[in-house]
Design a protein around this nucleic acid. Sequence first.
DNA 1: GGATGTACTAACTTTTAGAAAGTACCAACT
DNA 2: AGTTGGTACTTTCTAAAAGTTAGTACATCC
Lengths: 132, 132
Amino acid sequence: MDEQRADAEHEALVADVFSAACASRAVLEHVTGRWGVLALAALNDGVFRFNALRRRVQGVSEKMLAQTLQTLERDGFVHRDARPTIPPHVEYSLTPAGQEVARRLLALIEVLEAGVPEVMAAQARYDEAKGA
Amino acid sequence: MDEQRADAEHEALVADVFSAACASRAVLEHVTGRWGVLALAALNDGVFRFNALRRRVQGVSEKMLAQTLQTLERDGFVHRDARPTIPPHVEYSLTPAGQEVARRLLALIEVLEAGVPEVMAAQARYDEAKGA
DNA sequence: GGATGTACTAACTTTTAGAAAGTACCAACT
DNA sequence: AGTTGGTACTTTCTAAAAGTTAGTACATCC
């Protein structure tokens, strides 16, 4: 029991995503969540207002975009600049930490986009093997 | 309408994750899904059997691990080697495409794990500003 | 003066994830 | 000889997450 506690604490310190309780697991989920990835990737192209971002990230609902941006702002990856005007004017951008993360995400997205034809071929092969 | 159709087709061809209908969006979700990331990252360390992988990726249920591995196998990122013995013996490993993806994921995970203290600080600042 | 646009929030519904038990089979232990 | 344990899943049921819709509080355009 003491060993388990010690292990848990140690893993928390070294930040191991494979440990369920580690804070890095939560951060990973915010960043790689369905809309988190796309929001960060979109913001890599510059400053966006709420609805502009919503048009860019096709298919996201207002609720989920607001929620995602709040989470990423809380984690320090996104900067929210709200001007107290009417109608409201809010600008979203990446913080330096957010830029670091977005760069890695874009590297991933690029290899995935390039690999789409091979993935489609692999899927066809798999489905045929299962169906037949 | 013709324009929209042309746009959709064009985006499908160039593989744009921001387009909701694009196949790359689905692949991205498989790879960056809650358990997809961790499965790929774990398999980067070598060959694993089902239950060994389950112990490595702490917190995953049997159902979700099986589902995740099936999706990744279908996409051609994971190789499944089942020996028809009793009791069953199944080995999971990364394909070359899977290794490419896993490398980018690990790069991301590394910056996130390193950034955990700053994220925690940002969260504390955010919560204090909201609470006060 | 009704429609539209801004950035959300709240209530409600649908989809998905997770927890627990079941399956099929054999080996070892009792 | 029967119970336990291990393998790799699948199925069922429930709890949590995501998505849809409507509403807010203005201001400007037509």
